[in-house]
Design a binder for these strands. Sequence first.
DNA 1: AGCACGCCGACT
DNA 2: GTCGGCGTGCTC
Length: 808
Amino acid sequence: MIAEVIVDIPVKQTDKPFDYKIPESFLSLIQPGMRVVVPFGNRKRLGFVIRIKKESELTNLKEIDSMIDHEPVLTNELIELGGWLSKTALCLKITAYQAMLPAAMKASYKKYLRIVHPEELHERWPESLSFLNGYYNKEWGQILKKATEDELIIIQKALQEGWAVLEQAVGDQSTSKRIKSIGTELSKAELEKAYDQLDQRAKKQREALAYFINQDQRHFIPLARFLEETGVGRSSVKSLIDKGLLLEKDVEQFRDPYSHSDIKSTEPLPLTIEQQKVLEPIVRDIEEHQHQVYLCHGVTGSGKTEIYLQAIDKVIKKGKEAIVLVPEIALTPQMVHRFKGRFGSDVAVLHSGLSRGEKYDEWRKINRGEVSVVVGARSAVFASFKNLGIVIIDEEHETSYKQEESPRYHARDVAIFRGRYHSCPVVLGSATPSLESFARAQKGVYQLAPLYSRVNQQPLPEVTMVDMREELRSGNRSMFSKQLFSKLNDRLEKGEQSVLFLNRRGYATFVMCRDCGYVVQCPHCDISLTYHRRQGRLKCHYCGYEEMLPDHCPSCQSEYMRYFGTGTQKVEEALTQLLPEARVIRMDVDTTNKKGAHENLLKAFGDGKADILLGTQMIAKGLDFANVTLVGVLAADSMLHLPDFRASEKTFQLLTQVAGRAGRHRLKGEVVIQSYTPDHYAIVDAGNHDYQSFYQKEMLARRQRQYPPYFYLTLITVSHVDFTKVVDATEKIARYLKQRLSNEAIILGPVAPPIPRIKDRYRYQCMIKYRNEPNLINVLKECQNHFQDIHSKDALKVTIDINPYLLM
DNA sequence: AGCACGCCGACT
DNA sequence: GTCGGCGTGCTC
């Protein structure tokens, strides 16, 4: 039998299946979807078996070297999905397959020194064996570091003459945690007999044995826990092991990141009539095995999650599985608890806060069928379930569902692929659906499922707009308007909590010379550096470059360097000055990069240990604190003027999300939105909680400017250290596209992108707008093959992003 | 990716 | 005359 294998070498020349003979001994074991080690050229590589067949067109096939998995890690569906991804997202097959699996399963290649004929080698160099023994089974890199020069000469000779060989070992980075445990393989009767025969003086040993007599005999208990629980000493255990009564072994331990939190179990809540209307057709599809995409448009607090939970319950009862996608920043313990509360240990959770090993363990629970629900961020859409019954994407409009590196897939598209494959419903939920999805719902491609009233009948919070231009005119130069400031004070007196939102971290966005207007920029990225007060340094938010704050203008030597723009650090500082008694928690990338910091800060705020929560994006979602009655948006227009056709949409969504954080429970909520353009429809409509109005206006703008959902986009970015090469290649690409695509396709550029240089590489872009280009993928592929010369090391990089979300 | 094969300059 | 530069092509 022959296996088709996709080899782990991420270049286009090897991006095709290679045939290998399956050795006799593996014949009954090997299945498509398993990882194997294959000889490739003169070394060994990991590969994925994607197909098994009887014959090959080639002769002289090599044999598969060994198997890595005992069970397939990819189902047939996922193998197919990988092929589809590589076609539609223009990526390599191996890249697609790797994206579906946890990072711990990526191959690791290590070289080891193996001695072929130890005796003969010893005869030849008598002094060699002692040091070679020390290096036996050591990684080659380690040997090179440790060995002396004389030793290296001998090793080299031994390698040349064939006494020793370098062997490549292929494995992955998965480490299952093993814990030293004790137990017994004897029966209860045998143990009792042994107990009676034990020396009367061996009190502790008898005690230990009694422990095992009184419990399930096949159960192994971690040694450390046993010692602690029984108070028996290590030595007593050892004598029992020596007597053959107890057995020590390393038991594989599943890391359960949520084992320490106690989660209250919850019962399904009664649904409102509106909720039932939404749930009904979804349940019908589950029962009747139908694929359909639902867009659940529900205002904040309308009970979307309860609908998800009850739909999943139906899926589980049918013996099928459910995937729930949640944006990374909304994947808070609160969110996880809602699912664990309803389905208990039937839930696996996948998010970036887990360690590599923890993610791997969660993945294995899925692959072994030990859970039937997975809650996770984008990549959880690849969960290797075999009987998928529903896929739910919460906060459907979130741009983080699009992966910004190869494979550049959108989780929504993958979800729909899987929904079709399994004939099961896909539910997209959002209070502020993306224009693309809402337009599809309007056209009837998706089923619109509206939820326009709140479950608890709480009115949406009242929104106050503040025109910051007028504040400035009336002499208020601070970042807080009079209204916001007095309301903050008011909450402080009442002991209620406030949330302040500013979408910019750091202290000041840029530092400028007042005399000559020079702005300090990153020397590698052509973007202004952000001032971080605490370290007194300037940082680049794109490449991480840092430098000291200059005390003179580098251009004109003037001493008048001033900070412009406001970041969360500066707001924090202002708060401590203006409201010294207020306790403030600041949440942004800079305060939450340590593991667990995110949860701890939120918990502290939830426990009432602070009066004001100040933060960026990450506090806009999922927070649900009963005592929060005021939400302040410091600069509503900070995103509005970004060079992105989605700027209005993002502003509307963010404002609506943030406003939804106030008054979610008994206390009434209030929102203050500060802005310099309070008449912009994105801000006005967000203030009125009016999605429909915003949708109408924004669709009009999109049609006029020929953007999605009226047109599709593809963005081609070329980068290289040499600016002229970049421009030249991009121009050629643009010309080529014009020639090959239909007349209806609009090719914009080449132009320099908003950030013309990142990490010392110049960038140039070309945008394609189109409605129907059946040949597009092929043309794009030709472009990439033609211009991205893989052979030279300083090659042009051609990045093709179909349906881009990041336009820089 | 990594390695072999292959065709042109400065060296024992 | 050869050693070695890295351009081209192949790996089941």
